[in-house]
Design a protein around this nucleic acid. Structure first.
Lengths: 347, 347
DNA sequence: CTGAAAGCGCTTACAG
DNA sequence: CTGAAAGCGCTTACAG
């Protein structure tokens, strides 16, 4: 039963336009392509444009794709579309790309490697001109896959370890330094860290930043002061924080590797019969939407997601236009946003 | 400068498979199409499949699309990708669709009608097999556009007024009744409503539900007890609530048309030097992600977004498979989730 | 059960 | 500046 659209109006093709204008198909094609229009006599070109308009002609991108092997389509894969951090990043990517004539197709890659790999394959099959990835691990086989296909790739928010791919991230180490410095200045000395997964650059680097900042202040770091969450999810943050508190009853502050984890920390604090920030101060990371509306409003590190998205899109456009261009790594500076989840510690 | 991928390996086509198997192109095509495979001798078919596998053949969906005018692609347009309500809806749609072999392309339609219209045109040009819309107004010209094209459409969360399109929504009136009843039982009598935009079904129907529920309890509704927000955004909710409080200083409770508006109401309450729920109780609508983490944790109406997404996807699949099938309107039952933003009112 | 052929709607070397 | 022709990779009536 081939599902046939009963009423589909036979849409107008280039052939129709050409015939109606009394020119050859190829002339019509050129006249309607901004980059080729100069090849055609001005009067002819504008006549063709007028007729195309009148007939309601729209170029068939599928047919064009088949011929050119390009699509004016860029894929964006995020690890979790439900994570609010990605909303502004996606929005910014879409805006910039669309201004340059590219459509965006965003997909949720999830945690599963096989699913991600299948998704990439699917997008490649659909001839995307490039892929923006917010999913990669520090050492991710998917990248090799893309590079093998010769597909332009730019990484956003998370980077990989190789130097083979452009990326835009914030300075994760610096972000954690900001967090620790802030806590230190409030008088905290016993500070713990709920880390993100070590196989993701943000988890790895923020943990490094934490340890460096602690060392810089001469604070000893008990072996138990860091617990790694299994994923960037609230539940994982709660579990990790519960463990952290059990091991370190003296903790007066916790820096979390991201905001969702920080919300899990809130839970663990409450479950332990403690209160934030009275007993324990908490700093998040990312300043995701609604971070200001939770209780207590979350002190966190702002990463400029819109700028990140814009830059990623710009890198992508550059890369598509000039595939041999040098790899470019953009690192944005994070900033501290102080709200109510951190308080002075009187010892 | 046609951007050419320097290293693209000439990918293996159907022709390669056929040649390698010593059969005709068309035979290979049939053997590799599950719905046509029975036409081919079993031994031949499995030989072809084996070879396709070994060669790493992947069907080119672009070429197939051009020929069949179908794409196995479904578009999903949401009004605001940053609104957390849509995350689980999108995720559920994607899951169900993908299980049925369809890919999803999600796009942010924004508020602008022209942009939405362009987006729809773009997706149609890309030959999507159907469109799931979470953007429509009660009387939306875009629907006519889609119907004219013969494109399967299903509406999710918001419905239109005509009976020409399938949809899955929650019972918006019932939801507001739940909210008002809850407040009534807590002792509230002076209840206001921050309504959603009246041109959207949820705004319109929830307001009706509010007014009906108030009437059912014999509560008089001063003309000033409802203020309509200009959009489903926090800022708009704050502005509307500020207006509401100014006009009705005696209010002890506010039912908001959705959670984002409710968060705006929180702000307006604080700005007025009042406290929720001590002075004013607030009920939201949707139970979006993080609604439990705001302060105070939001009492709200749960709409079952995942079920909504699944149902929408199922309707879409049915419609694609059987375009003449009857229009179906699914209405899910909402439920009340009591948290801490509502409290007993002692008068 | 299999093959030969047409054609989906474009773009782009190649000629002139 | 314009035309004629080939071809992107598939699917599917039409034959046999």
């Amino acid at each position: 039963m081939p599902p046939r659209r009963a009423t589909t109006p036979q849409s107008v093709t280039l052939r129709d336009v050409a015939k109606s204008a009394g020119v050859h198909l190829s002339t019509a094609s050129r006249a309607l392509d901004p980059t080729k229009r100069h090849l055609i006599a001005d009067t002819v070109a504008s006549k063709i444009a007028g007729i195309a308009d009148k007939l309601g002609y729209r170029r068939d991108p599928i047919a064009a794709s088949l011929r050119t092997r390009r699509s004016k389509l860029v894929g964006v894969i995020v690890p979790d579309i439900a994570n609010p951090v990605f909303s502004p990043i996606i929005a910014a990517i879409t805006e910039t790309l669309s201004a340059a004539g590219y459509s965006t197709i965003v997909a949720d890659g999830g945690q599963d490697r096989r699913r991600q790999s299948a998704l990439v394959g699917e997008l490649i099959a659909r001839r995307v001109d490039g892929l923006v990835l917010a999913t990669v691990r520090r050492d991710d086989p998917i990248l090799k896959e893309c590079l093998r296909e010769g597909l332009p790739v730019v990484l956003v928010n998370r980077a990989d370890e190789s130097d083979s791919v452009s990326s835009v991230v914030t300075d994760d180490r610096a972000g954690m330094r900001l967090a620790v410095e802030h806590l230190f200045e409030l008088g905290h000395r016993a500070i713990g860290h709920v880390a993100g997964p070590a196989h993701i650059s943000t988890g790895y680097l923020r943990r490094q930043g934490f340890e460096e900042a602690m060392a810089a202040r001469g604070l000893t770091l008990p072996a138990d002061a860091v617990v790694e969450a299994t994923a960037y999810e609230r539940e994982a943050g709660e579990a990790a924080a519960a463990e952290l508190l059990k091991r370190n009853p003296k903790l007066t502050a916790i820096a979390a590797a991201n905001d969702l984890l920080a919300l899990g920390v809130y839970r663990a604090i409450a479950a332990a019969g403690l209160s934030c920030p009275r007993d324990i101060s908490v700093v998040g990371h990312n300043d995701m939407p609604l971070a200001d509306m939770v209780e207590p409003p979350l002190t966190t590190i702002r990463i400029g997601p819109r700028e990140m998205g814009h830059d990623a899109a710009r890198l992508m456009i550059a890369r598509i236009q000039e595939p041999e261009a040098a790899v470019k790594k953009v690192v944005l500076s994070p900033s501290l946003v102080v709200r109510a989840s951190t308080a002075r510690h009187e010892s």
